[in-house]
Design a protein around this nucleic acid. Structure first.
Lengths: 148, 148
DNA sequence: GATGAAACGTTGTGGTT
DNA sequence: AACCACAACGTTTCATC
């Protein structure tokens, strides 16, 4: 397996992060390799775990989720574990992290409307104290990972 | 253009969000359509903006970013606009949102190590007061959007 | 990594419901 | 309007160098 990423692979990663639906011919032209060489490099990066997958990005708004929010949770004593087991089942939660600091959890959630937000927060109050921040706009959204 | 998503399209979206590198033949088998019918549905969803794109997911850790953090910023008077113009140029910032509440901004950042984190925070102090939370673990990560 | 051939997938046309 | 069948085209993959 490979562990360091060379410049050519960084360029391939940049291309695939921007748009993964390009043919090996197109990618090869951009980086100066033949299609089989590109295919082999992509396969090796998948095998080594650098490339975790290829996913479609769906518009939250067009899918009917008009509201996004950041919610932090400060779990009650003994309620963190039940929360961690329950949260992957919530369809509204797109990201959830355990964090250091006064709060234990931060979540990014998508919601239909304010009523939906209210219902969602009501589900959480038995696990801990929440703080909600409505997202007004995306400044940076899923920026590609760049070379250090 | 289409504005509502029918059940068949939701199933196609679920498949593409899980793995966008499946052939039209495979997708067609799963949803009970022929490849041209699947292709036409995907094209229409792209045209209407429901499908925003196809992107490769890269491992932060394997790319050399050992640390993730959530940083909130409470911008100083007159410093929010300069910050919003500057932040898309920071390679460490993968997501950045304007939010309601006491803080104006929440960011998700990737970093090499603690020294890198320190340097990064130092860049921000001229724009406002920051609060940093190290991410200990991912509980939910880029969950697919589901049907309401 | 390149080349060339075979296998496979995608895309367009025409026709059906 | 949405889908199917089939053919033409492009892409991926595999053997060999």
């Amino acid at each position: 397996m490979i562990d360091k990423i060379d410049d050519l692979n960084w360029r391939i990663l940049a291309i695939l992060q921007q748009n993964s639906r390009q043919s090996l011919v197109e990618i090869g032209k951009k980086v100066g390799l033949t299609p089989p060489a590109v295919a082999e490099r992509i396969k090796k990066m998948e095998d080594s775990g650098i490339l975790e997958g290829f996913k479609a990005k769906v518009s939250y708004a067009k899918a009917g989720y008009q509201l996004k929010a950041i919610i932090t949770l400060r779990a009650f004593m003994g309620k963190l574990k039940p929360f961690l087991e329950m949260v992957p089942g919530l369809p509204e939660v797109t990201n959830c992290y355990r964090i250091t600091g006064n709060e234990n959890i931060v979540m990014e959630v998508v919601l239909k409307d304010q009523g939906h937000l209210e219902e969602f927060i009501d589900q959480l109050i038995r696990y801990g104290e929440t703080r909600t921040h409505i997202i007004l706009s995306d400044v940076v959204s899923q920026a590609p990972i760049k070379q250090i």
